[in-house]
Nucleic acid binder design. Structure first.
Length: 901
RNA sequence: GGGCAAUUAGCUCAGCUGGUUAGAGCGUGCGACUCACAUUCGCAAGGUCACUGGUUCGAGUCCAGUAUUGCCCACCA
């Protein structure tokens, strides 16, 4: 016998082990079944799974389990990401804290530090694997991958070289976002802006006045820029040179006219610092101006700053302002000037733009082959979404996506960190000439030195949907080309493109867009792949998880922060999964808090107890549930059974069609309501009278199958007790199908009637409108109803708490009875005068008032010619019917009031 | 500055292509030791669907504007 409450703790690990040991998650590449593939967005191998990861696992597992049961060859590829900068900075901070190292990079050197990070990552991977399992994820562990494994490294390098040869990757001096704290560049997308109030200074600069919030960068300013149409400065000509007194003495400056200057802002004149400002850099590029470095990569001023050389920016600023003031060049200071400062998303340190030699991907060059045409990367990315090859859910993000592409600049892919895929480029200075080698393998010969930079972590993630499907044994064979490797990999041929990419909308640009970029680029040149594949058909974007107050989940608010693993320990994985799926809608943020999870824990327990009840019944009747194989003939079933089977058909339909449209939340609610309100509250209640165990077991099995994608553990556990003898595990069961013979709307309506009768009795009782212990007579018009009620009389008697219950097939003494007309059915309850008169009258009067108000509303509507003439006849007819029904109801109520009074 | 979204019960949210008296969960109040389940069961209260106009026979739903909130992108020296 099952225990009274379901205990997920003992069951979940055992069930997961059973699935895994029996290879239930392993996809068969040789199968003839249609494939269904998802690549798990690889969590960062930096320690722990967070709620966002848990959410995506829950959603994806629903897709996968559903499709697997529907008969697809479902493959879910798990893995982890090396998360270059995140991991490296995490480990460095850790070393600083735990081992009191000042600068771990210097103290350990490249190799030792990498070894340390590697050990840390291996450990994290272990943790994360365990945590993904805790969620119940049915991913194929035999195909687990890691972005830095040798096979993937080979692919990364191949793609780099291919792009280099196509002229899409180039090396150039460009202004980049430099993070002095982490000593690396970061991409535009890795910057956050923070509003700050800082003083805003205005200085005298020759005949001009210029304003700045960063005087410490102004040493090298030797260009003064204004708008060409600004009449105030019309007397100065473009290219005019003059000498002005500046911080460290006189400097020669040149007048530049450029439309980038806003005449309305400040004095309409500015000086530029091209080395340390994006906008200034662009102006300088346009006019081919000199650029000078002012700030070192360590964040300190360079010798150009003269006496201020070596100072940090923070220390230098007041001193410089002081000096300018002393020289009489300070015109004014506006305190509390509000502006945005760029901060590193990772370390939260200031970003100092710098000019550096970096590797870039050209997004505008039209050399990308796609469907037999040559386009730019930008154009391909736009096309696949525009033509509907890729569909984004919710579709409003397609707009965001296009907007992002429109503004996309060349992608800086090199990073000055050590943890990551090393750039496959070698340099050599021999005989005064410098050589460069770009290749999959290191060059032969001596004196070659590899580029010390590594690749942006998103470069390798961008290949994820297919780099994980490559046959590992081929990756070591350097006679093969990238195309050969792909075409010889059975997994790739069978399972790519993937079906759904499910992730948070916050990494649409970081990752999703870049996967599209890389995959279309690589496959577009391959005739065998019809000149181009997208990495996936559908992008499902979930929202961010927030706490009860709407804040982002974070450890800084431990009282509301939810750690998925803690929650699973407390409420079970099924409850967590349900809580994260139901109520969640794509693209919208979602609040998660403990009560929600507790609510679904209760639901899981409800399902558990419903099953327990069924099993108890089986035991009572000495019936072995495993021997129940099929339904008895329909014509032998009772009304209630037929109604239940009908309702199940509708449920099967709704669940399948909802899931195919990715409406997970709605389907979850539908299942929740069905199990709780219909199956438990009504059908099982009715079954307490007479039971057809075959139907009961069949219905429960169906429900359990439908619920399995949402809460796999409890359903698998229950399945073990309920399944037919020859059936295997639930995870591999077939999805229920709709049988038209079982559709029986009439029975369903009649059962509703019965339910209404019972509701009415309950209500009467709870409102104390009938006295307990008295006789209750139910009179009904239809023979079928009478039979039905008769079979339930014991149950109703209990509900109504009456001493006896009489059921008659014909109305008797209608005059002296108080009848309740129940919606759409001719069933009356006769209370044989044993009611609490005052309570009843009050109730009836209220009901009557409501109905009268409602009726007059409909009447007014029907009198309105514009309605009756213009509305569709169907609608008008419906209103008429409504009026008739309601009037009849009101009439009965009036009669009852009369008979009472 | 450009863009996207949200605004429905005390709280968290559903409400698909405009059509019965706008729903759920939680919370609240009242009642119940009903033999699967107190992680339960029954009942009730609570909403001029942010505001103002418009389209329509009919608007929570479509359109325009306003307000508030949130997010994304760009960025001004």
């Amino acid at each position: 016998m099952l225990p009274k409450t379901y205990d997920p703790k003992t069951a979940e690990d055992r069930i997961y082990r059973m699935w895994e040991e029996s290879c239930a998650f392993v996809a068969d590449v040789k199968s003839a079944k249609e494939p269904f593939t998802i690549s798990l967005p690889p969590p960062n191998a930096t320690g722990q799974l967070h709620v966002g990861n848990a959410m995506m696992i829950a959603l994806e597992d629903v897709f996968i389990r559903f499709q697997r049961m529907r008969g697809k060859e479902a493959l879910w590829v798990p893995g982890t990401d090396h998360a270059a900068i995140a991991t490296e900075s995490f480990v460095i901070r850790k070393l600083q804290k735990e081992q009191k190292m000042r600068d771990p990079r210097k103290e350990l050197g490249r190799e030792k530090l990498l070894k340390g990070i590697h050990a840390f990552v291996e450990n994290s991977k272990k943790t994360i694997r365990g945590q993904i399992r805790k969620m119940g994820a049915s991913c194929d562990w035999s195909r687990e991958h890691y972005t830095m494994e040798p096979a993937l490294n080979r692919i990364v390098v191949e793609v780099f070289v291919k792009m280099y040869r196509d002229g899409l990757i180039y090396r150039g001096n460009r202004i980049v976002n430099w993070d002095p704290a982490l000593q690396t560049t970061v991409s535009d997308d890795e910057i956050i802006y923070e509003e700050r109030k800082e003083p805003f200074y205005t200085f005298k600069y020759g005949p001009f006045e210029i304003s700045t919030s960063r005087p410490e960068t102004k040493f090298g300013d030797k260009y003064v820029v204004m708008h060409p149409d600004d009449m105030r400065y019309a007397k100065y000509t473009h290219g005019e040179k003059m000498t002005v007194e500046w911080i460290n003495g006189p400097v020669e400056t040149t007048v530049i006219k450029d439309k980038a200057v806003d005449p309305e802002f400040g004095t309409g004149v500015m000086t530029i610092t091209p080395w340390h400002d994006h906008a200034d850099f662009e102006i300088a590029e346009r006019h081919k101006l000199d650029k000078e470095q002012i700030i070192g990569f360590d964040g300190k001023l360079l010798p150009i700053a003269g006496e201020f050389s070596g100072l940090t920016l923070k220390d230098a600023r007041p001193k410089i302002v002081e000096k300018l003031k002393a020289k009489g060049l300070l015109v004014g200071v506006k305190e509390d000037y509000l502006h945005n400062v760029a901060l590193s998303q990772r370390g939260k340190g200031m970003i100092e733009p710098q000019i550096k030699e970096q590797w870039f991907i050209d997004v505008n060059k039209r050399v990308v082959k796609w469907k037999r045409r040559e386009l730019s990367l930008k154009e391909v990315m736009q096309e696949v979404v525009q033509t509907g090859l890729i569909k984004i859910i919710p579709n409003r993000f397609e707009k965001t996506y296009f907007h992002w592409i429109d503004n996309l600049r060349d992608w800086c892919i090199s990073r000055q960190i050590w943890w990551g895929h090393r750039i496959p480029v070698w340099y050599r200075n021999a005989a005064g000439a410098s050589d460069i080698h770009v290749g999959v393998q290191p060059p032969k010969g001596t004196a070659w030195e590899q580029d010390s930079d590594t690749l942006d972590t998103w470069f390798s993630s961008a290949l994820w949907t297919w780099s994980t499907l490559v046959d590992r044994s081929l990756a070591g064979d350097f006679d093969l080309t990238l195309e050969d490797i792909l075409l010889k990999s059975p997994d790739f041929l069978k399972f790519h493109p993937t079906d759904v990419l499910e992730t948070g909308y916050d990494i649409l640009f970081f990752w999703v867009a870049r996967m599209i970029l890389m995959t279309t680029y690589v496959t577009g040149a391959m005739p065998e792949l019809e000149y181009g594949q997208a990495p996936f058909d559908v992008v499902y974007l979930h929202g961010l998880i927030r706490d009860r107050e709407g804040r982002k989940m974070s450890k800084t608010h431990p009282e509301t922060n939810i750690d998925p693993i803690d929650v699973i320990g407390k409420y079970g994985a099924d409850a967590l999964r349900l809580a994260m799926i139901v109520g969640q809608s794509p693209g919208n943020d979602f609040r998660l808090y403990e009560e929600k999870i507790a609510g679904y824990r209760n639901f899981v327990n409800k399902l558990w107890n419903a099953s327990r009840f069924v099993l108890m019944k089986c035991e009572e009747e000495k019936k072995d549930p495993s021997k129940i194989a099929s339904l008895p003939p329909v014509n032998e079933l009772t009304l209630a059974d037929r109604a239940l089977l009908h309702a199940l058909q509708a449920l099967i339909h709704d669940v399948a069609s909802g899931l195919q449209q990715y409406r997970l939340s709605e389907v979850g609610e539908r299942l929740y309501a069905f199990v709780w309100d219909y199956f438990c509250d009504w059908y099982l209640e009715l079954s307490k009278g007479t039971v057809n165990l075959d139907v009961l077991v069949h219905a429960l099995r169906t429900i359990i199958k439908l619920l399995h994608p949402y809460c796999p553990f409890v359903t698998e556990e229950l399945w073990a007790s309920l399944k037919p003898a020859d059936a295997g595990m639930l995870i591999r069961e077939q999805w229920p199908t709709i049988t038209s013979e079982l559709q029986d709307q009439q029975s369903f309506d009649q059962l509703l009637t019965l339910i209404n009768v019972i509701t009415a009795i309950r209500k009467l009782r709870s409102e104390q409108r009938i006295a307990p212990g008295k006789q209750l007579t139910v009179t009904i018009f239809s023979k079928e109803h009478a039979q039905l009620l008769d079979s339930q009389s014991g149950h109703i008697r209990r509900l109504a708490k009456v001493g006896s219950l009489t059921i008659a097939a014909h109305p008797q003494e209608l005059k002296s009875t108080v009848a309740v007309i129940l919606a759409g059915a001719e069933v009356h309850l006769s209370l044989a005068g044993l009611i609490n008169k005052d309570a009843e009258l009050k109730k009836l009067a209220k009901e009557g008032d409501e109905l009268r108000r409602y009726i007059s509303g409909i009447e007014a509507k029907l009198r309105d010619r514009s309605f009756t003439d213009k509305a569709p006849p169907k609608v008008v007819e419906a209103e008429r019917r409504k009026l008739e029904e309601t009037s009849a109801k009101l009439k009965t109520i009036c009669e009852r009031i009369r008979s009472l009074a």
